[in-house]
Nucleic acid binder design. Structure first.
Lengths: 215, 215
DNA sequence: CTTCATATTAGGGAATTCCCTATATCCGAA
DNA sequence: TTCGGATATAGGGAATTCCCTAATATGAAG
């Protein structure tokens, strides 16, 4: 099967090309450094599969490219290959028409399996991400479709989140907001549940990613 | 020559291993997913070269590992292979004893060239980064501020600081670093004293400002 | 040989957080 | 009028952190 690889890191693309070309049923016909280049190469080569990174600064992102490619070349299947394990990315690219989502931390065997599965008409989602998908299936639109914090969280929660991320303790936050420690605990627990964050580091990462820390 | 690869992404490690093993004079003897594992493998294999990523969350960073490896195995040469083009990182790892700095966006030929240059006793710096080095050479210390964490803090403190900033508890940090909670407490107290930080939010702000959070 | 810094560890008590479970009021929408 | 969400608060116990004080081993520098 014909494959195109899109990743902004040249040496990483080379590495992927090598390990894929080693599989008897796989052939990398071209590689791209960003979304625009990937689109052009798909137009030219009409591959079966595109392996698409999500973030390819400063070029066009894989999310945009996936959307365009699926629109203009619906027979080409797109598998996202990224280091981001955020379910918001997963849901978004699935809606864009991607047929697979693999994390870069996975072993090469998983990548091979994903490619073959998708080539045969299936969908492959990295197991750790699949649970998010099941949740979403069971409770559509419950919380995770719109992961923009300003949509998901109440005003009070939006006040509490950055303060927690910055490292203030519950007691300090209570004093700042003139509420009780118990209330802070409750808001914190609710916002973590809404955002599907399991621990403090995930909360800090989320706050950073969504630019909620005003330092 | 014997090479060890340290990168948190398994499929990326596989790719690098493939392209390096294809070179007649290069052999990848092991791969590691973080700095601690890299150190252990260096002890075991005594490679000529280590290709080290800088950021390998949630494991130990390549910066810390580079320092330890150069200290205990001075004959092993370390080449940093990262996506970060910040000169702060470059200066630091050179001081730690790294012999090369290659960006992941470079083509594989540059990586081969870097490895061969370093193996022969030379130093290889990605051309775009070399200008920063020349500047620093011509005006030493011009841009180094007195609160450069890499100047003020010990290696252990540099390990603890980002973890605290990220929101990990002392118990979790102790488990990650295989030390006791009391030790974590002590390092934390010392580094806060050195940096004149009075509380957790100041520590978080400091870590952000100095790009110590690998998310 | 001495001194100093780093790394590590500890006791102990107070303070705080975490986690589970629960309740109440207010307000807006149906 | 009813219902659900937002906001607020609480009890209680286990776990953890904070803070102060103290100690040891090792290696490097003078």
């Amino acid at each position: 099967m014909k494959i195109i690889i899109a990743d902004d890191h040249a040496v990483v693309r080379s590495g992927f090309m090598h390990i894929l070309n080693f599989q008897e049923d796989m052939e990398v016909v071209a590689t791209a450094a960003d979304g625009l280049e990937a689109y052009d190469l798909v137009a030219k080569h009409r591959p079966d599969i595109v392996l698409m990174d999500l973030s390819m600064p400063p070029g066009e992102s894989g999310m945009i490219a996936t959307s365009k490619i699926k629109e203009d070349f619906p027979e080409t299947k797109v598998i996202i290959l990224t280091m981001y394990d955020d379910e918001e990315y997963l849901f978004h690219v699935l809606k864009q028409g991607a047929s697979g989502y693999v994390l870069k931390k996975s072993p090469e065997e998983e990548l091979f399996h994903a490619i073959r599965t998708v080539y045969e008409g299936g969908t492959y989602i990295h197991p750790e991400m699949a649970t998010s998908l099941v949740k979403e299936f069971l409770e559509p639109g419950a919380e995770v479709v719109e992961t923009d914090p300003f949509e998901l969280l109440t005003n009070r929660e939006l006040e509490v989140l950055p303060l927690v991320a910055k490292g203030y303790g519950n007691k300090e936050i209570a004093e700042m907001l003139h509420i009780s420690v118990k209330t802070v605990e409750a808001h914190k627990a609710r916002l973590m549940d809404k955002l599907n964050l399991k621990n403090k580091p995930q909360l800090v990462e989320y706050a950073l990613k969504h630019k909620l820390l005003n330092f």
